[in-house]
Computed example of a mutant assay.
Amino acid sequence: MLVLNFVFALIWMALKEEFSFIDFIVGFGLGFAIIALSQKVLQDQIIRTSQLRSEDSYTSYPERTMKTFSLMVFMFWSIIKANIEVARLIISPRLNIQPGILAIPLDVQSEIGITLLSNLITLTPGTVSLDISHDRKTLYVHFMDIADPDAARREIKENFERRVMDLFP
């Protein structure tokens, strides 16, 4: 739906024949309103085509948009914190790190959810998603410094995976 909203914004700009940031914002706002008002009509088609959620767990477009922006803000903040931590580790006179690979059990089931989760982990400095088990139940992640494996696993599950599952179960 977010892509459709961007398309509406671009169509608005083309109809106005002005390609300014303000016209994009106005078009995006109008697209948002159109999608929010017509979501009940589109709901059945969205559920059938995406097959990511059942009818009982369908969330509205404004709610999904807020969750998407929340995930983006969380990732931006996580990347900043991880960059500072990695810089601190590298600059310290003693390189006192404990690298390791951690198996993280997954609750997320969709292909797009697993892909998004592993990419978000890899984007965060100091961690790299290595592999996923054949049954898609375990993600293997390399940590630059893993002093407390349980805390690292909890961080991934409670912060990253929970936010991804809000969008893609």
Rank of each mutant, 00 (worst) to 15 (best):
R53S: 02
I121K: 02
I79V: 13
G27C: 09
A147R: 09
L2Q: 09
D145N: 14
G27Q: 11
R154D: 12
R48F: 03
S70F: 09
A36F: 09
L30I: 12
I90Q: 06
L4Y: 04
I35H: 01
E55P: 15
I156L: 01
I34W: 00
L139K: 04
G113M: 03
V164R: 11
R48Q: 14
L71Q: 00
K67H: 12
I97K: 00
S60Y: 09
A103Y: 05
V141I: 00
A151Q: 14
K81A: 07
S78I: 00
M1I: 05
I97S: 01
P62K: 14
I104Y: 03
E161W: 10
I46E: 10
I91G: 11
A36L: 11
I121Y: 00
V73F: 07
I47G: 06
D56C: 11
E17H: 08
T138K: 01
D23H: 13
M75A: 14
T59S: 08
I114H: 02
P169H: 15
R88I: 11
R88Y: 13
S133N: 02
I132S: 09
D44H: 07
L117P: 12
I25W: 15
I91M: 12
K81T: 15
F76C: 01
F69H: 05
Y140L: 04
F143G: 06
L117S: 10
A33H: 05
D56S: 13
A103F: 04
I90T: 03
E63V: 15
T59H: 10
A151N: 05
R136G: 01
D107A: 02
L71C: 13
S92V: 01
S110T: 15
S57N: 15
E161Y: 03
K81N: 08
V164F: 08
A36G: 08
M13W: 14
M165Y: 13
L42A: 15
A14F: 13
I121S: 05
L37I: 05
D166Y: 05
F69S: 03
S50E: 14
A9Y: 10
P62Y: 03
G100W: 09
F6W: 12
F32L: 01
D145Q: 04
P99K: 08
A87D: 02
V164G: 07
F8N: 04
